[in-house]
Nucleic acid binder design. Structure first.
Lengths: 217, 217, 217, 217
DNA sequence: CATGAATGAGGCTTCATTCAT
DNA sequence: TATGAATGAAGCCTCATTCAT
């Protein structure tokens, strides 16, 4: 976790540091990400990084926690108890996710990498397998829905869960790839970053969830 | 692509080389994979690698092509023209995929990494194309099925394709993770590598495809 | 030498600083000793060190002088003029040395390092002089004793001096190693630090001096 | 231990490497010795060192073994069984030691550092406490001599051993410091390296041993 | 054709010291 | 006077690649 030195940094400087480091770690595997590149980009001294963090791993862990907090802020506004229907809840989670991706694209890409692409041994132990957790949550829920009748009883629970997990990953990836491209294109063409496409993505998500629903009904 | 020197190598030597290199690249990102380690493992001269291949990238590209060819050999036995029903064809593709994973686990893991985990800039331009290709193939096919009536016309083609792609990824990952574990466990416990679990995986695949079918029908 | 700032420090703070710095320099070579670690241990500002001392060397020199003064305070209670016999005087010096080692173990260990283990070029010019000084003192004294008859005249003075110096070093080392272990063991076992072993050491010193006497008589 | 690469090096190159590395490690503590300085002195590439040795420790261990072998070659010509008198044997060991110091001054200084000055934690476990071994050997021998009558029975064996050990250290140090200076002076003044002083040292050693004998008789 | 020594860029990290606040 | 952020040199080590033999 960062030193006091880092936390005491002027807000702007600290933020610039975070963004630059996030970009490096979002674009590269843990092993390939280079502290050298970060300091060159930031134009700061080599030693500064080590006044902020004890080492590369410490920096990575901080960025992970930072990103997860950012994501939580977006996600937690979706209050499960307000939904009578799981599917709508599930759908809204993704739509919030899209907002997160739009507003904090670096965090989003970094977390995406951690969740799907990271394979360095140095961080392996810190990649808490969200898939395992998600599986447990979904299993409970699928059983529920079977009783409700919104999922038919002949479907094997484990397989249904696997099915839903697939879709979840997939929707995440969809946003990451398609959407990042869109943002980059818009950036390049100096158009406003977020155009009508958000609506398009929301529609896509809804239809995919609808298919999921069909499949299991 | 490899030099003649490499192709003229004694079969066994060439094969050992391939396996060792594959293992290194299957276990590590392109950047992290180390030619150093390969030559130490093989106990060959440093220079040999550069007499077989022009550089690291060249070696990687060869391994990629080699693995793809191995995979094709397994897959192409599934002859589309023999199937009246696409879903059955699709299902059989995955079942063949499982066989491939069992018989050529290094190739399989290497290709899996390329498809899902690789992110080095050095190889960026050589990967990811399969999703584009697959998309094109599935688009043609979804339109077909819509005419056949096995996919309902109200579903947006692009979304249906996305849906199928998700499931395809997912099934691939399923085999990689669950199955690799099984293999490793069996290895460790000195049991025969492939046990009854194959049948279990086949069943899982079939059910997942069935769900896909339901969703789109 | 330290700045006024340092000397004006509250007694306790100054003392804590000295002890912590002493510990670092007693445990590590000059080069390996780290100001970093000292300030972390003390929880003080990096800059403070440089407001107390001009640089690392200055700090080291101060600690050296400080330790030497501490040692002198112990040693000078042994008043040469009160002894008619040099050997008894010599013996008592060591016995006082043991007291010093017990009461100021950090100073003692630091001085021991300086005398026997230090080899950094940065401090080379400040050490080793004690052997030269000691040699001069012993030379005068050996000549004296030759006249007294307590050292036989056929012994080469230089060699006799060398012989006495050896024994001096050796007794010092004896205390450092054997005694430090005892202290540490006692610390670990929560026994009182100084047990009957002091008497044992005194006895050892006396016997060694006796041998010295025999040798030269 | 060194790689084949190192062992296959041209004799002269390998020897130059050893000498340069020995000099660095003889002049500096393990921590302070710098591979950087070695490669600059040798004008070789940074990476070469790591083709010869796995790391700094590996290099140090090799130099240690190398030096010990060199020393053994000198020492083992002194065959204990040919001596009826231990003191003569003991004396000759030191005289051989002087020869070693003259012929392999770097090895000698390096071993001296290991034996007396080294305090890095990285190598602590490899500094086999020769003092412990020596103590055991001397204890056996002192008991013997007591029976022979060449050491009087009233002397405490442990103390006698301590006494002899001191002298052993001391003679070693004597050679190291006095002699090194002489060599360096001679080097500087382009005189022949080894002058009449050898005889002087031999005489010194003999007289010191004589004192030792007196002390214990 | 195989060998394996040489290369040097680049990686992470530690450190003593400076200096603006 | 105290603070603590900034600095950059130097340390060890790994790597892909080259090239003389």
């Amino acid at each position: 976790m960062p030193t006091e030195t880092f936390l005491n940094l002027a807000d702007e400087k600290r933020q610039t540091f975070i963004e630059t480091a996030l970009k490096e770690f979002a674009d590269n595997n843990y092993d390939s990400a280079s502290i050298n590149k970060i300091i060159k980009e930031l134009n700061i001294a080599r030693g500064s990084v080590y006044q902020y963090f004890t080492d590369k791993l410490d920096l990575w862990l901080y960025l992970k926690e930072y990103s997860e907090i950012q994501k939580l802020r977006h996600i937690q506004s979706v209050d499960r108890s307000k939904y009578t229907d799981f599917w709508t809840y599930y759908e809204d989670l993704f739509i919030k996710g899209i907002n997160f991706d739009i507003e904090k694209p670096l965090c989003s890409r970094f977390l995406y990498r951690i969740g799907y692409k990271e394979s360095s041994k140095d961080v392996a132990e810190y990649i808490d397998n969200w898939k395992v957790t998600a599986k447990e949550i979904f299993t409970v829920w699928v059983d529920n829905e079977k009783n409700n009748g919104s999922i038919k009883k002949t479907v094997d629970t484990e397989i249904a869960v696997q099915f839903i997990l697939s879709m979840s990953s997939s929707i995440g990836e969809l946003v990451q790839t398609k959407y990042s491209n869109a943002i980059e294109n818009n950036l390049a063409s100096e158009k406003p970053l977020f155009t009508e496409s958000i609506e398009e993505y929301k529609r896509t998500v809804k239809e995919l969830v609808q298919l999921l629903k069909n499949a299991l009904k």
